[in-house]
Design a protein around this nucleic acid. Structure first.
Lengths: 109, 109
DNA sequence: TTCCTATATTCAAAAGTTTAAAAACTAAGG
DNA sequence: CCTTAGTTTTTAAACTTTTGAATATAGGAA
C-alpha cells in the first residue's frame, strides 16, 4: 500500500516528464483550449498532441469536454499551475548555469 | 533553444519519476543523510540506492560530500521541498479516489 | 607496511517501458 | 456521404529498470 502510494506519485511525475506534455500544461494554465488551438500553439501534428493528451487524461491531470466536433481541454486541479510555478523557480535557479555551460561546450567543439 | 528548455524541464521531472527517487528526496527534505542511513530508511540494497542517487546527482538535484568512508547527501535547492509539498497537496486531492477505486476493483476480482 | 573491513559506486545483461510516426478509425455537422 | 476534428492502434527504435557481480577507496588492526 505504501509502495502503491510511492508508485502513484512516480506515475504522476512521469506524466510531466515529456517536453510536449509540460508545454500543454503550461498552455492550459493560461486557460482552456481545444485540440486545434493546442496544435497551432505547439506547432505540432494532431495525432502527436492527442497521444500526449491521452497520457495526461489517463493520469487524471486534464480532462476534455466535447463541444460539437471539438474537444475542450482543462486542468483537473488548479494546483498544477502552482506546481509548474515552483518548478519554474527551480529551473531559473539552475538553467542559466546548465545552458550557458552547454553553449560553452558547443562553441568549443 | 526553446526546445532545449522544454527538454531540460522534462528531464527534471523525469528525475522525480521513480518511487525510490521521490522517497530519497522526501527523506533528504528532513535533513542530510549518508548512503547507509538512506539504505536503512528505504529498506533497500546499497547498489540500488547508489544508482538512484547517481540519477539525482547527474540532474543536479542532490549532491554528496565525502566524510571519511561515507558520503553525506543533501538537496541542492530547498525549493525541492516546496515542490514536493505542492505535489503532495495534488496527490491528497486525488489519491483517495484513485486508491479506493483500486481497492474496489481488487476486491471484486 | 600490508591486509581487512565497511562504505559506496560502477558495470553489464535481461526484462520491461516509452517514444515517434504513420495508418486506420470514429463521430459530428454540413 | 463528405469533411473536419480528434482518437486509437501499430511498430521499431530508444530508453529505463532491476539484479548481481566487480571495483574503488578510506580507515583501522596486526
Amino acid at each position: 500500500m505504501n509502495h502503491n502510494i510511492q508508485q502513484f506519485k512516480a506515475d504522476f511525475f512521469k506524466a510531466l516528464a515529456h517536453p510536449m506534455r509540460i508545454r500543454i500544461l503550461e498552455v492550459l494554465s493560461e486557460g482552456n483550449k481545444n485540440v486545434n488551438e493546442l496544435q497551432s500553439i505547439l506547432g505540432s501534428e494532431g495525432s502527436a498532441v492527442s497521444q500526449q493528451l491521452a497520457v495526461l487524461r489517463n493520469k487524471n491531470i486534464v480532462f476534455g469536454l466535447k463541444d460539437g466536433t471539438s474537444v475542450i481541454y482543462s486542468l483537473r486541479d488548479p494546483l498544477i499551475t502552482d506546481l509548474l510555478a515552483v518548478a519554474k523557480r527551480i529551473f531559473d535557479n539552475h538553467l542559466v548555469d546548465a545552458i550557458s555551460l552547454l553553449e560553452v561546450i558547443r562553441n568549443e567543439s
